[in-house]
Design a protein around this nucleic acid. Structure first.
Lengths: 101, 101
DNA sequence: ACAGTATATACGAGATATCGCATATAACCA
DNA sequence: TGGTTATATGCGATATCTCGTATATACTGT
């Protein structure tokens, strides 16, 4: 939870996650897509890995990264009570508008 | 988006947000609930404010903080495509298990 | 105007993150 | 074995975050 938020706090890492939503990709493909240099890519991928957001498998020299849905599901679960919160507020607003009219 | 993630990356700020889910609170009430010192509380509240996660209103000397649902709704929206992603994966798993049995 | 209460800000120290450059590791192929 | 490709790690500089202490600001009641 902790680490999911901070891992996703970086815009570059969010772009990586967005790329991986579509399919598994090698570190090099991700790097070229983002147009940042190689060590930077590798370090950010490490952060995502350590946060559990991505998994890797080796194929020859390549490292293929894929999204692990679990931490994002946790994030979704964390949001649940807030969803109730804002629907309650929107309902109240709606009710208020009804009163007005 | 950017700022929502980094604001929520801090555990203390998440606790603040959780407290505010229940009701509007003064800075002092939040401080006492969290048992951290006053300036720390104030600075974290500022961060939440600048991220747009909370709103303040003055009542006498007090500052009453309340949650603004908008950034959390954005976060929820950001998660939407990932929800599709993991249900697809779970469906695939289920299908796989069907094959097995 | 003054003392008290509530909250914010300034400043300095220590910790942590980020980046670029250089280098290490590891698998491949000839 | 040696060269090449793909990826990771080490290191140093800079920036950013966090916290504690001290102080400022602002409103209240007398």
């Amino acid at each position: 939870m902790q680490s999911s938020f901070s891992a996703l706090a970086d815009p570059l890492r969010r772009r990586m996650v967005e790329i991986l939503r579509q399919s598994e990709r090698s570190a090099g493909e991700i790097q070229r897509a983002l147009k940042v240099n190689q060590p930077t890519t590798s370090k950010h991928l490490r952060t995502l890995r350590e946060a559990g957001l991505v998994r890797v498998r080796k194929v020859a020299q390549r490292r293929l990264y894929r999204l692990d849905p679990a931490p994002l599901m946790e994030l979704d679960a964390w949001l649940t009570p807030y969803r109730d919160f804002w629907t309650a507020r929107l309902d109240a607003l709606e009710h208020h508008l009804d009163q007005e009219s």
